[in-house]
């Protein structure tokens, strides 16, 4: 048990099992309505699948250690733009499609920005590699 809890994905697995037990108790002992069963099943099922995949990934790849230097992302203008695009898209449902077009435009610029940020991170990684060190982008 201690070994399971000591791993991050193990805790998610325990969480999923807790939820499954609660759902099973509701389903097997009581007489719940369909929504209670459905929500409980969704809750337990989705977390179980996610926990199992995290567990499997962690087993396969091992937990990335923090000893390696990281490329620290310190700012992202594109993310702020993306948020504005999402907000504008929601507002467009109230104020008309013209806002949706503007939102799409902002989203496009934001996507371009994100690609550029990614490229810059990769370039700096290459530089570090070239300098004989190893760095991992986030």
């Amino acid at each position: 048990m201690k070994r399971v809890v000591s791993r991050g994905s193990g805790v998610v697995l325990i969480w999923a099992l807790n939820l499954t037990i609660l759902w099973a108790v509701a389903w097997a002992i009581f007489d719940p309505d369909a929504m209670t069963v459905a929500l409980g099943a969704w809750m337990a099922g989705s977390v179980l699948v996610w926990a199992a995949s995290a567990w499997w990934r962690e087993r396969r790849a091992g937990r990335p250690s923090d000893e390696q230097p990281l490329t620290i992302v310190d700012a992202s203008h594109a993310t702020a733009l993306l948020a504005i695009a999402i907000i504008a898209a929601l507002l467009a449902t109230q104020f008309g499609p013209w806002l949706a077009y503007i939102s799409a435009g902002i989203a496009l610029v934001a996507a371009g920005g994100l690609v550029r940020e990614r490229r810059a991170a990769r370039a700096s990684l290459e530089q570090v590699r070239a300098a004989g060190r190893e760095e991992r982008p986030t």
């Binding site: 990281l70 992302v73 993310t79 948020a83 999402i86 994100l114 986030t138």
Partner: peptide, 18 residues
Amino acid sequence: SQIIWPRLALLGFWLLLG
């Protein structure tokens, strides 16, 4: 040294503001 998916965290802040 930092969080995973820092851009998503920032996006979260902006959505809260919205």
